[in-house]
Simulated scan of single mutants.
Amino acid sequence: MPDRNRPARRDLIAGAAALAATAPTLLHAAAPTALPSLTGRTVLITGTSSGFGRIGALHYARLGAKVIATMRNLPRPEADTLAAEAAKEKLDLHIVEIDVTSDDSVAAGTASALEAAGGRIDTLINNAGVGISGPIEVQDMEATHLAFNTNVIGMQRMIRALLPQMRAARAGQIVNISSQLGRVIVPGGGHYSATKFAVEALSEQLAYELVPHGIEVTIIQPGGYPTRVWQNRNVYTGALKERSDPERLAAYEPFTRGMGTEDGSGRSADPADVPRAIAEIMAMPAGTRPLRRAVHPGPKPQEAINRVAAEVQVAWLGGSPLGPLIRAVHD
C-alpha cells in the first residue's frame, strides 16, 4: 500500500545527514481548495467537548476523515450531542474517553482509539487545554500544576502514546494547538503564556527530531475566538481567586479585580477558522506543510517573531551537522 504521508523533501535532506531516510520524488504543494479532501485519513483530536475541538471533529469527518473525538469525564451531554450530530450526518466519528492529565486514561484511551482506527492514526491533533488568569504570584501550586499538566504534560502523554505506531509506518502528522500567547505576553494572563511557550519549544524540537521518521509537526497559533474557553477559564480562575490570600490579590490590582468574570465578549471571529486551517494543512502533500500557522482575521503579532526565530535557527545550526534537520523543517 503506498505511503501517502511520507515527507519526501525531509527524507532527502535528512539523508544528507546520514540519518536513516529515503529519497523518493520531491512532492510539490497543490493549489489550496475551499474544501480539501481528507478521505482515507484517520484523525485523533483531544478536547472535543466544545470549541475548536468539537467544531474540528465534525469538520474533518465531513471532509471524509475517520475521526476519533476524545474528551474526559464520559458519559456527558457534550458527547451525546456530538454523537447524535455525527449519526444524523452519517459521519465516521467515534467518541473515546481520554483525560490528558492521566497516564492511565491516555494509555487506555489511545489503545481504544487505535483499535477503532484499525491500528493507524495518521494525524494527532493536541487541542485539549485550560487557561487560568491572574498574576504569576497569585497562581498557587494547584493552578500551576493544572495548567502545565493539561497544556504541556498532557500533550507529551499523547505524543508518547501515538508516536510509536507513526514511526513504524514512517509517516504521520502531529498538530499542536498553541496560541498567539505562545510568542507574545499579556500581563495578568497567568501561566497560559508559560505553557504555550513550552508548547512552541516542545513542538519545534520534535519537528526536527522526527524528520528522519517521515513525521511532520505543525503548530497552530490562534488569536482570540469566542469559544467556551472563556467560561471554562472563569471556573478555574474564580476558584483560584476564592482560595487566594487577600494580600496577594490586593498587591496586583487591577489585574486581580476581574479574575473569573471575563466572558470573551467583543470577539466575533469565526472559531471554524482554526479547523479549516488545520484541514488545509492536513490535505497538503507531505513534505510541504508549515511548521507554524497563525490563524486569526485580525492582527498576528507572533508572525514577526516566527520569522526571526526561523532565521536564527537556520543561521545558528544550518551549517552544523544538525543543519539538514533544521533546513528540512524551515525550507
Results as ranks from 00 to 15, higher is better:
2 P>E: 14
2 P>N: 11
10 R>W: 03
12 L>Y: 07
14 A>L: 08
17 A>F: 12
18 A>C: 12
28 H>L: 14
29 A>E: 09
34 A>S: 13
36 P>S: 15
39 T>I: 11
47 G>F: 01
48 T>C: 15
48 T>F: 06
56 G>M: 07
61 A>G: 09
63 L>G: 00
65 A>P: 02
66 K>R: 15
66 K>A: 08
67 V>P: 03
67 V>D: 00
69 A>D: 05
71 M>I: 09
72 R>S: 10
74 L>S: 05
75 P>L: 06
80 D>S: 09
84 A>F: 03
87 A>I: 04
92 D>Q: 12
96 V>M: 02
99 D>T: 07
102 S>R: 04
102 S>L: 02
105 S>H: 10
109 G>P: 04
123 T>Q: 00
127 N>H: 12
128 A>I: 04
131 G>M: 09
132 I>H: 03
134 G>D: 05
136 I>W: 07
144 T>G: 11
145 H>V: 10
147 A>Q: 11
148 F>R: 06
150 T>E: 00
155 M>C: 14
158 M>P: 00
162 L>R: 02
163 L>S: 07
167 R>H: 14
170 R>S: 12
174 I>S: 09
174 I>F: 08
176 N>T: 11
177 I>G: 01
178 S>L: 05
184 V>H: 05
199 V>Q: 09
204 E>L: 02
205 Q>K: 15
212 P>A: 09
217 V>P: 01
219 I>N: 01
220 I>V: 11
222 P>I: 08
227 T>C: 07
232 N>L: 06
232 N>E: 08
234 N>H: 02
243 R>S: 08
245 D>H: 08
248 R>W: 13
253 E>D: 12
254 P>F: 04
257 R>N: 11
262 E>T: 14
264 G>I: 02
268 S>W: 11
274 V>A: 05
274 V>M: 00
278 I>T: 01
278 I>H: 03
279 A>F: 06
280 E>R: 13
284 M>T: 05
286 A>V: 13
288 T>K: 02
293 R>F: 01
295 V>T: 01
298 G>S: 14
303 E>Y: 04
303 E>S: 13
306 N>Y: 11
310 A>H: 08
312 V>Y: 15
326 I>V: 15
330 H>G: 06
331 D>Y: 10
